[in-house]
Amino acid sequence: MAAIDGQWDSVAQSPMGEQKSVLTLTSKPDGSFAGTNSGPLGSMDVTDGQVTGDMVTAKMQLTVPFPMTLTIEGRLEGDTIEGTIDTGAFGKFPMTATRKE
């Protein structure tokens, strides 16, 4: 499993412009991971995190401006995650995350 632990500067390209946040991720003994995503609109838990090879998936429950489940899918290469955030009815948006030093 690729190393997911650490803090990551994340940027999602949404219709509301760039959404910047900090992902704090911690792996678990069973190979999954969890954490938090903190940004200008507050913090949300990162759940159901899995790393399979270099593929990363996780979920977050957005509450502001309205409730929705966000699904992250991406490719982990060293200190970078590139992928999408799927918002369901509002579509998928590109996202990148870079591990902080």
Rank of each mutant, 00 (worst) to 15 (best):
Q61F: 03
G53N: 12
S27I: 05
T26S: 13
S43I: 05
A2D: 02
M68P: 02
Q50I: 05
V64N: 02
T63N: 08
F66D: 06
T24Y: 00
G83S: 09
Q13A: 15
A2V: 14
F33R: 10
A2S: 13
A3N: 15
S14F: 12
L70G: 07
G42L: 12
V56T: 01
T87W: 04
R99A: 13
I72M: 11
A2Y: 14
T63Q: 04
T36K: 01
S14L: 15
D86V: 06
E82K: 13
T24L: 04
P40K: 07
G35C: 09
R75F: 02
A97P: 03
T57I: 11
D79I: 02
G6S: 12
N37W: 00
V11L: 15
G6M: 12
R99D: 05
T57Y: 09
A58M: 03
T36S: 05
V64W: 03
Q13V: 14
M16C: 05
K92Q: 11
T52A: 14
E77C: 08
V56Y: 07
P65A: 03
Q7L: 11
V46M: 05
G74V: 05
P40A: 15
R99G: 13
K92M: 10
F33D: 06
E73D: 11
A12I: 14
E82L: 11
D45F: 05
G83L: 07
D9I: 14
A89L: 11
S14A: 13
P29L: 07
L25E: 00
P15I: 12
A58K: 00
M68A: 09
D30E: 06
G31Q: 10
A3V: 14
G6Y: 11
T80D: 04
T36C: 01
Q50H: 13
V51C: 11
Q19Y: 05
T57Q: 14
A12Y: 00
P29T: 10
G74M: 06
L70V: 04
G17W: 12
I85T: 02
N37S: 14
D5H: 09
T52M: 08
M1K: 05
G6P: 04
D30V: 12
G39S: 08
F33Y: 10
E18G: 13
T57D: 12
T26L: 03
V56E: 01
G91H: 09
V46T: 01
I4A: 04
T36G: 03
G91S: 07
I81H: 00
G49Q: 07
D86F: 02
E82Y: 02
T26P: 03
I72V: 13
E77P: 08
I85W: 09
D79K: 11
Q61C: 00
D86Q: 05
D79W: 11
G6V: 13
V56D: 01
T96G: 10
S21D: 03
G49N: 08
Q19G: 14
F93H: 03
